[in-house]
């Protein structure tokens, strides 16, 4: 645990291929294949889809990041548009998960940290699948526990990740642990 004062200034990530299961069989696939979540844009915090009335689910699955086929498919409009700050220009590929901010422990200029997690080719594959068991409701809330993620890494040494590399893989491997289905305190 970093004994740190941490400020998050930017959080963006892709949610891809969201599906729902009932008793482990696939019952539903979201039409929108790639959704860009942006902490600073409240309208991106919701994914709305009308489900057929007979659909029952007890688990959802999705990926954090953009699959390799999409990564090699050229320019795509909308959430995948390369003007969204989630595409590397010097080496092709999407940034799957971007977290920026500052922390007192960071040994960088202005104590900044920049985690741009991407890489779609083995051995640096940072696309992560997540499965969450949950209760079916009108609104399913998913929490992203950024504090948990930051506490697993030493920001004094892990503060600048901007290419597909070993550190990016380590952080990507941690991502499935920080997505949680909210349990209502009823």
């Amino acid at each position: 645990m970093n004994n740190d004062t941490i400020t998050v200034s930017n959080l963006k990530f892709y949610i891809s291929n969201l599906v729902a299961y009932h008793a482990d069989s696939l019952v539903f696939e979201l039409d929108k294949k790639h959704h860009l979540f942006d902490l600073s844009q409240v309208n991106t915090h919701h994914l709305t889809e009308k489900l057929p009335s007979n659909v029952r689910f007890d688990k959802i699955g999705f990926y954090i990041g953009v699959d390799s086929l999409t990564n090699v498919s050229g320019a795509i409009a909308g959430d995948l548009d390369p003007t969204n700050g989630m595409y590397w220009t010097w080496q092709s590929g999407y940034i799957n998960f971007k977290l920026e901010g500052s922390a007192t422990s960071c040994l960088s200029r202005l104590h900044r940290f920049q985690w741009h997690i991407g890489g779609y080719q083995s051995p640096v594959n940072t696309l992560k699948q997540i499965h969450l068991k949950l209760e079916q409701k009108k609104d399913v809330d998913i929490q992203v526990q950024i504090g948990d993620l930051l506490s697993k890494f030493d920001l004094s040494t892990t503060f600048q990740i901007m290419s597909p590399n070993r550190q990016a893989v380590e952080i990507a491997n941690t991502l499935p642990e920080i997505f949680k289905a909210s349990v209502d305190a009823e």
Binding site: G74, T89, W90, Q91, S92, G93
Partner: peptide
């Protein structure tokens, strides 16, 4: 071979 698709190639010189 840093760029994997012709459509994405121009991004590199524009921002370099």
């Amino acid at each position: 071979g840093a760029i994997n698709h012709l459509d994405m190639q121009a991004l590199a010189p524009i921002s370099h």
